[in-house]
Amino acid sequence: MADSTFKLSVVSPERLVLSEEVEAAQVPGKNGYLGILPGHAPMMTELDIGELSYRQGDRTSYLAVTWGYCEVLSDQVIVLAERAERAEDVDRERAQSSMERARQRLSNLQDPDTDFLRASTSLQRALIRMQVSQKAGGSG
């Protein structure tokens, strides 16, 4: 594979979020972030809540993804994400308010198990969305 790019598609149940030729991508794997360059061996991994980034030339773009799978094939990478949002599309205010809500829920917990899990995941999700949206439009 002499190609210097590969095709990255991000698919969510509601739509095809992204399908572009990229030079490199970084995905939030369950066991940690991993970078993918052209010519990667076929691989399959589960994704965590996190930030997905990809590079085209000297421009780096970001997406917030929530759970999913990443499938690396010889010339393309397919990300199946339960939810995926481009940095530009993130609703800052909503992310902010859901972050505050989650924080509040975490601070006054009564029912220990399920609620905690839900609150902490939604906090994590909100944080990632905030983080990603700050990088919106930021090239380089």
């Binding site: 794997g29 399959m44 799978y69």
Partner: peptide, 12 residues
Amino acid sequence: VDYIYEQPAAEI
């Protein structure tokens, strides 16, 4: 396709 699995296949 013979993938490398980051997690055990059964878990995925």
